[in-house]
Every structure is written in C-alpha cells, then in structure tokens.
Design a binder for these strands. Structure first.
Lengths: 298, 298
DNA sequence: AGGATTCTCTGACTATGGTCAGAGAATGGA
DNA sequence: TCCATTCTCTGACCATAGTCAGAGAATCCT
C-alpha cells in the first residue's frame, strides 16, 4: 500500500476524530450518559428485543440490563416479556422516550449543521460530495460475501426482494413460473453455489452461480438491495463468481439480462463481458453475455 | 441549509464514528489507557511544557498531573522544571517513551491500512481523494480570522515567514528596505488593520489592509502558511478585507503582486479584481489589480 | 418428567476519566 | 519587601462504562 495514501488516511482520521468524534459524544450525551443515549437511539420507534440490542451494541447483558433499568426509572422506555417466549423481553419507547429520541435526532442535525455552517456554498457542496464518497467506500469495505445454502433465511430474503423488484421494473411484470428459474438444487454444491452479501449482519445482496457438469458456468439471480447500491457490490459479485467458476474448472461465464436493467448491462460490459446471441430461451431476457475466464485474453 | 446535505453529513458522521472512531480508540489504547496514550502522543519528539499540554488537550491540571505521574512511573517520560521559570515543568520522552510512541505511530498506520485493504486500487484512490477533500474542508472550517496589532507575536511570526518566502521565490531575492513597505502604523487603526488566521491557536496566515484617508483601500502582505494552503483561506481573507473596507466607506480595493506569485494572480481574478495600470512604483510588483466594492456591479 | 439450555437480572467488583478545593513553590510587580 | 499571581501537585471525591459469577424463570429436547 502506498505510503502517501496511508498518510492521507491518517490525517483524515485525526481531523475527523477531533472534529466529528468529539463533538458527536458531546452533542449526544449532553444531559444523559452516552451509553443511555446510544441505547435509546438504538431502540428505535418500533421497539426491540433486549437480546437484539445486546447483539447490536455488543454490550454485556448485565450492563444492558442496568441501562434499561435506568431508562425505565426515567420513564423513557417500557420493558415487557415477549408474549411468545416469556424469557425474552422487548423494549418500547414511551411517549416521553419518543420525545427524548426526537431531541437526539435534532442534536444530530445540529451537529451536522455546525460542520457546514462556517463554509460558503461552494465549499459546502464539495464537502457533502466528498463525505458521500467516503461514506460509500467505507461502507463498501465492510460488506462481506459468504456462500450460503439457497434455503438459508438471508438467501430467501434476498430472492424475495429480487422477485418483487423484477415484478415492479419489468414492463409486463414478472411471473416466476414462466421464467427459466434454476431450482435451489442447481445453486448448491456440487451443481452451483449461492452468495449472500451482508452489511452489519443484514443481507444486502445475492448472486447465484450454476455449474452444470461439462458446460459453461452461468450467473443467475444477482441482486443488490437499493440501500447498498453504488458500493461496487455488483462488480465484487462478478469477480468473486468468476474466481469461483475458474476454481471449478470452467473457462466461460455466461449470463442473461432484461433490457430494463440497463445499469446492469453497463456493468457487464465494464467487467469484460461481451454480448452474444441468445444461448437459452428465457422469456424475460433481452441480452445475453459471455466472458472467457481463467487466463488472460490472448 | 439544505436538508439533503444535513442528511448526508449525518450518514457520514455515523459511518465514520463507527468505522474510524471506534477502531481508533481500540488501536490506540490496546495496552494503555487511552488518556495516557493520547498524552504520550501529544508530547511529541521535542518535549512540551505541561501547561501547553493542558491547554492543547483541554484537561484538568490535577488530572494531567496524575497521568504524567503514571507515565513517569512507567519510565516513559521525564518531567523537569523549566530552567527559566521553575514553576513551569517540561516533559520529555525517555528512550522507552520514544519507542512506545513509535509503536503508537505504527498502529496508526495499521488502522489506516485496515480501512484501505478491503478495497481495490481504483476504490482506494477514490477514497483517499475524498478523504483529502473532507480533511481540507473540515480544517478550513476551523480556521478563525482575527484583527490584531501588527506587533503582536503571531503577526510578527507571519510577517517573518512572509518575507522569508518572498526572498526564496523572487528571482532576484527580496530586500524589505527596497520595497514600499507600509510601516506598522499604516496597518493599525485608524489607518488600517491587520488580520491573522489561526488554526488550533497557531498563526497560519495574515493580511493587512491600508485605509489611507480619502483614498482607495489597499491590501498588503497577504500570506498563507504552506501547511494551510488549499483551504480557501486566500479567498476568505479577500472577502473579509473587502467587507471591512466597505464598512470604512471605501468603494475601491487595490493590490499589487509579483509575477512569481501566479497562483495569487488567478485568485484575484476569480474574486472579481481586474488588472489595471501601475498605481504605485513598488519595485517588486509586476501586476496591479483593482476592484470596485460596496455595491453590486452596475 | 427432568435435565439442558436460553435469557434476563442482581450483586460485587474494577478501571477510567474527570472534577474540585486547597497547598506549596516560584515568580512578578508595586 | 511583601502581596498577588502563576503553575503544579495532592487528596478526596464522583460518574460512567464495563466485567464476572451466579441465580431464577421460562423453554426446549428427549
């Protein structure tokens, strides 16, 4: 890694922990310990199970119990046993808690404003752009890819979202029954595999790879959650799948796509795929792509 | 302020405090309380007076005293009375302290590396660029301008640096005696004023304004420290001085500049100055500029 | 039914970060 | 010379954040 880059990152870290980090705690914890403030924030409008909170914030169960007690005593939250499983307890914000949370929200706005205020309009615009870029790339760096069974809860979640989205975007809607859908067996070893991308533990994308014996590998059901777009995740899926296809001895990688997914088309081309005649009769496909893989192009 | 901007800043704050802030403390304070680590870091190679440290870190004198004691006991620093004023004490790193600080330095590199590592080369380059931009603009937002007497220590520091730099950059060197230098009286009320820019309390730039009775206002001795360039500070000086000249009833603002300072020339033009014939016979000037101020151009 | 497991809570404890009110030494100013 | 000021240190506090080892209740599994 380039020393100049490291240096720039270090300067960034320093500036940002001084200007943002310090202020952040200061604003957030103005009249309440910041542990409590963070917890209050994390509970959210909808309420949460205690164990989820513990997981998410990475806190000791004794500690969180005490924090909740203190918030309960202050009348900000109510803790009740979950009807289904009475060992589990759920936390909800009370009216007062909601008000308090709104105040935290306002403070967060205030902090953001205080960073922008000293700048002129042009500088503000540039700062906000650059922050967006940093935000996106740091987030991109925390996304993990993992191979899972297509029946895994996270996989199913992604597939459901994928189908819903196709339905909305295709002019004539999308009926899974009419499409050449691989059944789950085709996307699990040894006939294929299925990748899920996760961000902070939540599934945010998927991609399947068919590895039919003695035939080209084929990418199916690649999807990225709207929130996780612009993170280079599509590109990452493609290169990960390509690598795995090579590892399984394939030298051609194929995929088909619908014309309404034009961003995808650009991606495939940028990643070295070229358009080829239809190699299947998927009714929903308008474009077919292929890439020779496994050794540098001659 | 634009709500979309506020939102982006908030997302940035969140991502960055999670990814950078948390890791930062984790890396820094691995085997030493982070208060001590920060102090050790801030002492620096050269040593510091205790009161400076207190000022800089904003800590209670009792607290810092205890921290220093603990570092002394660990053999990392030595505290001695300042020979000149034996109430003041200075801290230096011992050999072991220097080693410890080097380790902190390495960790900081490690942290920076851990942010870049998951990204590909193109993403890294973009992240580093964006971080540079954020860093610059956040820093720019913390610079303050203040009017001071030209004899103030900070003002003199800036002027010394300014002259040194001219000497280096002008082809034929720079001899203050030959130049049409305003004497200090011309840059203090009521005949003028002198601004100093400060970053974290350190002077990083200056600019003088002559306000000769019944004549156009004139900018003199504008300088920005090399470390503080690219922060839009020149532009800020110009608009601050313009505003003050208007407040003093002037409707024309003038300045002269040397041809080797070409960045400056571009700045003046971008700020609405236009080149005019020489209005003085400053031997070191090659270009003269003027701007009508105080009301929108007709 | 009964033991293992899961989930939360309690009590006891620790370290860190920090504040506050002087005390004591050195210095500066009248 | 003496009083006020500056600077550091000490002792006595305090709150927050967190850990650890059970205990008790509910549930799951066989």
């Amino acid at each position: 890694m380039d020393a100049g880059q490291i240096d720039q990152v270090r300067r960034f870290n320093r500036t940002v922990t001084e200007r943002v980090g310090a202020l952040h705690d200061h604003f957030l914890g103005r009249d309440r310990p910041i542990g409590e403030a963070r917890l209050l924030w994390e509970i959210g409008e909808a309420g949460q199970e205690v164990r989820q909170l513990r997981e998410r914030l990475g806190l000791d169960s004794g500690y969180i119990s005490r924090l909740l007690r203190s918030l309960t005593d202050a009348g900000l939250v109510a803790v009740e046993p979950e009807p289904g499983d009475r060992r589990v307890r759920t936390v909800r914000l009370t009216e007062a808690g909601r008000a308090e949370r709104t105040m935290l929200d306002d403070r967060s706005d205030e902090l953001a404003g205080s960073l922008l205020r000293p700048l002129n309009a042009a500088q503000r615009a540039r700062l906000v752009d650059a922050m967006g870029e940093v935000d996106r790339l740091l987030t991109a760096a925390t996304v993990t890819l993992a191979a899972v069974d297509p029946d895994h809860a996270d996989a199913r979640h992604c597939l459901r979202s994928y189908f819903t989205e196709l339905q909305e975007r295709f002019e004539a809607g999308f009926d899974p029954a009419r499409s050449l859908l691989p059944d789950a067996g085709e996307l699990r070893p040894p006939y294929g595999l299925f990748l899920v991308a996760r961000l902070h533990g939540e599934p945010v994308g998927c991609a399947g790879l068919k590895l039919p014996p003695g035939a080209p590998a084929e990418i199916k059901r690649m999807w990225v959650a709207p929130d996780a777009r612009r993170l280079g995740l599509g590109r990452r899926f493609l290169s990960e799948l390509e690598e795995r296809a090579v590892r399984h001895g394939r030298d051609v990688l194929r995929l088909d796509t619908n014309k309404t997914l034009n961003a995808a088309k650009g991606l495939y081309e940028a990643c070295g795929f070229r358009e080829v005649p239809a190699f299947n009769d998927e009714p929903y496909a308008h474009h077919w792509f292929e890439k020779r893989i496994g050794r540098p192009p001659a």
